[in-house]
């Protein structure tokens, strides 16, 4: 899936005052030269904090993101679709795992990160707080949500933090398969019966705007972008990526007979891209705050899984401890 910096505070603002200037200068020079920063290297605290937040948000998004699609595995309409969807959702779990591991190299444990998610302190992508109503939603998510994710993540393969960049290389390979399978579902739906076409257009209408929101607030309302770009945590601005997404996706919709639910969408010859209508930012911030249509369901599902699984994790720990004691005694 994807990541957006969802913190509103300008975390890098005081860097100059706190850190050792010589170390900071050396660090900035390495980053500017596109070198990778590795876990044991010196790094400014604000860099560590920002990355921990970004990578853990990304990890949480992968894990919470299993739920909307997981909702359809049991009802996938053919053996092939079932296998593909299972493989895809399993990939998301794998992405979550790499990303938690990458974030752990910055000094925060997976347990702490998961507790932050469950307490509502940590955020995850707003997109997963929308429901999957029909099978067409599975197509729309693969095509649009994973498509937006790829756009966000491809540049992150060159992000300055080594473990994150390497995780992204693997993740991106899988995301491109996800996106293609999603679009393939959409094609089959649009080539299908009137019922299927209706489902598909409806799903597209519901997922289009939330997908545009995935790139985060507009640049003039994105306080951390400048610092994050200087640190190569981010490589393109939110608006640049959003524009690119619209430019690529609108013709794909057209090609299979879907209508983009935006009366203002229009090709602009001069800029070589589409003009498009205003995103409903009020909705975006409401969803960020946890007021998305199924935000409560998503958080409940995650907390339930964690709490109901506590006895399993305890048993595994107890067993491992017994084995270690036996090995020591032997």
């Amino acid at each position: 899936m994807y990541t957006t910096e969802l913190s509103k505070s300008a975390s890098g603002a005081n860097v100059q005052g706190i850190e050792d200037p010589a170390k900071l200068a050396a660090f900035e020079a390495r980053v500017a030269a596109d070198e990778f920063i590795e876990p044991k290297d010196w790094m400014p605290e604000a860099y560590r904090r920002t990355l921990t937040r970004q990578i853990s948000q990304h990890a949480h998004s992968e894990i919470v993101g299993m739920l909307p699609e997981g909702n359809w595995i049991s009802r996938a309409p053919s053996l092939r679709r079932k296998a593909i969807l299972l493989a895809k959702v399993q990939d998301e779990a794998g992405h979550g795992l790499y990303l938690y591991s990458a974030a752990e190299t910055l000094g925060t444990s997976r347990r702490e990160m998961i507790e932050a998610l469950h307490s509502g302190k940590a955020k995850y992508s707003t997109i997963f707080n929308y429901p999957t109503l029909t099978w067409a939603d599975i197509g729309a998510i693969g095509w649009l949500v994973d498509g937006a994710a790829i756009m966000n993540q491809v540049p992150l393969q060159r992000t300055s933090y080594g473990p994150y960049a390497r995780a992204m290389v693997r993740v991106c390979k899988e995301e491109s398969f996800h996106q293609r399978q999603g679009y393939e579902i959409c094609m089959a739906m649009m080539a299908g019966t009137p019922d299927q076409q209706r489902m598909m257009q409806d799903a597209f209408n519901r997922w289009w705007w939330p997908s545009l929101m995935m790139f985060g607030p507009t640049d003039d309302n994105s306080p951390n972008t400048a610092q994050s770009m200087r640190w190569r945590i981010k490589r393109d601005t939110n608006d640049e990526l959003r524009q690119k997404f619209v430019d690529i996706t609108a013709p794909q919709a057209d090609a299979i007979g879907l209508t983009v639910p935006d009366p203002d969408l229009k090709w602009n010859e001069a800029k070589g891209g589409y003009d498009f209508g205003a995103v409903d930012w009020e909705e975006f911030y409401a969803v960020v705050k946890g007021e998305g249509p199924v935000a409560k369901e998503r958080m409940k599902a995650r907390r339930d899984a964690w709490e109901k699984g506590a006895w399993v994790r305890e048993a595994a720990a107890a067993y491992a401890e017994k084995q270690a004691r036996k090995a020591q005694a032997a």
Partner: peptide, 28 residues
């Protein structure tokens, strides 16, 4: 596959989905 997204931990989730995937492949 009913476990997917609801298992006691990410690793367990992965292993259950992996088995489900093998079984759906065999079934096919």
């Amino acid at each position: 596959a009913e476990w997917c997204g609801h298992a006691p931990g990410v690793e367990v989730d992965l292993s259950l989905a992996n088995m489900a995937l093998d079984l759906i492949g065999q079934a096919t």
